[in-house]
Design a protein around this nucleic acid. Structure first.
Lengths: 94, 94
DNA sequence: AAATTAGGTTTATAATATAAACTATTTTAT
DNA sequence: ATAAAATAGTTTATATTATAAACCTAATTT
């Protein structure tokens, strides 16, 4: 048995943290994710884009009062990808 | 609880596979690791160097008959680092 | 003896992660 | 009223990384 490939989109500390967060909630706001992960806004913005482009999360932009509000949630595709990643990863660490 | 930092030296598919292999054996030869991980020789050579420089593995060069033989084994430091990495990682995937 | 294989290493390149710099708007202080 | 600072992000530049291609040396094979 050889080592399964790890989805490079998920094998990134920050993106993995984002997905880990999102898999446990209905949705989460940009600022909340930023605080929980400790990421800089710039880095977070880039990584959310990548996850969104891959279809792993959906991102909606609206307003909270007068301030911009970015809300993220994991998609079915994202959940599947995360689960596959975790299963593959276990081969390396168990 | 926020996300623990993942040792960047271990958070790499190939290096993690190498460590995963080495933690289960006494020692392993270059060619064996190459086959098991599916890595190219060049890539493997580079990654073994990095792990060696970090003190995570020890690398000994000798000869098998007339051919060069590179033998690797995990160190105590490497075992500790691997275990820490795995513990931290679990926070993301459980 | 020329070509191929074995066992690697070095170097060049492409991809990635990351933060610095920037934008636009809003709130707060003077 | 207006200057300063905070909020909520985005874009861009840079530094690091992963990876394979090219290379090297010695030993086999044809």
């Amino acid at each position: 048995m050889s080592f399964a490939k790890l989805d490079p989109l998920l094998h990134s500390q920050l993106r993995l943290a984002i997905m880990s967060l999102l898999i446990g909630v209905d949705s989460a706001e940009f600022v909340f994710i930023k605080e929980k992960t400790g990421a800089t806004a710039g880095n977070l913005s880039v990584q959310l884009d990548k996850l969104s482009n891959a279809g792993y999360i959906s991102v909606t932009k609206s307003f909270k009062g007068k301030k911009p509000l970015t809300t993220c949630s994991i998609t079915k595709v994202g959940i599947k990808a995360f689960e596959d990643y975790v299963n593959n990863l276990k081969q390396y660490i168990e």
